[in-house]
């Protein structure tokens, strides 16, 4: 079913909205949640919460890209879970590894006022990613938005792992410089 038709089901408050969403995006959201949390149970919980949240947000929202809309909700639930369960260590799934990698970009001891600056940070990240060349952008989004393991990115896109890693390393360096320029770290 087309995304627009699924969104129409939400707007019509039809029960089919959830089943159609699950059919089309269940695996997608599950993989995002699993990559972040690292356990099947947590991932299932995040995905269920995602459907519930989507049901509550539509209407009023009419997402233009349903996959990104749902993926974002799933990410948020999974990241909350990750934080709540204090899994910022090795062995906590791709979320923990991604956190370790991204610590390159944020020096310790930098203060950021919550909310307003968080939104500014989101906007800055969005601008930064939009300005990356296609290849780097694709790899960066897959790694840090969808949290796909480096091995899988390399396999799917036909790059060697070392190439993917070096691409990510350079992009993180650029991100750090960009955040500095923007006064965000």
């Amino acid at each position: 079913m087309e995304d627009a038709a699924i969104v129409d089901l939400y707007w019509a408050r039809s029960d089919r909205a959830i089943s159609e969403t699950e059919h089309k995006y269940g695996k997608y959201c599950h993989s995002i949640a699993f990559n972040i949390c690292g356990t099947r149970e947590d991932a299932e919980e995040c995905v269920s919460d995602t459907w519930f949240s989507a049901w509550n947000q539509m209407p009023d929202k009419r997402p233009t890209a349903l996959s990104a809309f749902l993926g974002c909700i799933t990410r948020n639930f999974a990241l909350n879970l990750l934080k709540a369960r204090n899994r910022h260590k090795r062995g906590g799934g791709e979320g923990a590894l991604a956190l370790e990698e991204l610590s390159d970009c944020v020096p310790d001891g930098t203060d950021v006022e919550r909310s307003v600056e968080e939104r500014e940070l989101e906007r800055a990240v969005g601008r930064f990613v939009a300005g990356l060349p296609l290849r780097e952008r694709t790899v960066f989004v897959l790694r840090y938005w969808r949290l796909v393991p480096v091995e899988e990115i390399s396999e799917r896109l036909g790059f060697s792992q070392s190439k993917t890693k070096s691409m990510l390393f350079r992009t993180r360096k650029k991100l750090r410089a960009y955040l500095r320029e923007e006064g965000l770290c």
Binding site: P63, A68, L102, L121, T138, L142, W145, R146
Partner: peptide
């Protein structure tokens, strides 16, 4: 405190079209 967690969460600022593009390359 800007930490890696905040930064990971801030990836939500990535534009929809960039996510869709990356998904397309990855999933097809």
């Amino acid at each position: 405190m800007l930490d890696a967690y905040s930064l990971l969460r801030a990836m939500n600022g990535i534009r929809e079209e960039d996510i869709v593009m990356a998904d397309k390359h990855f999933d097809s």
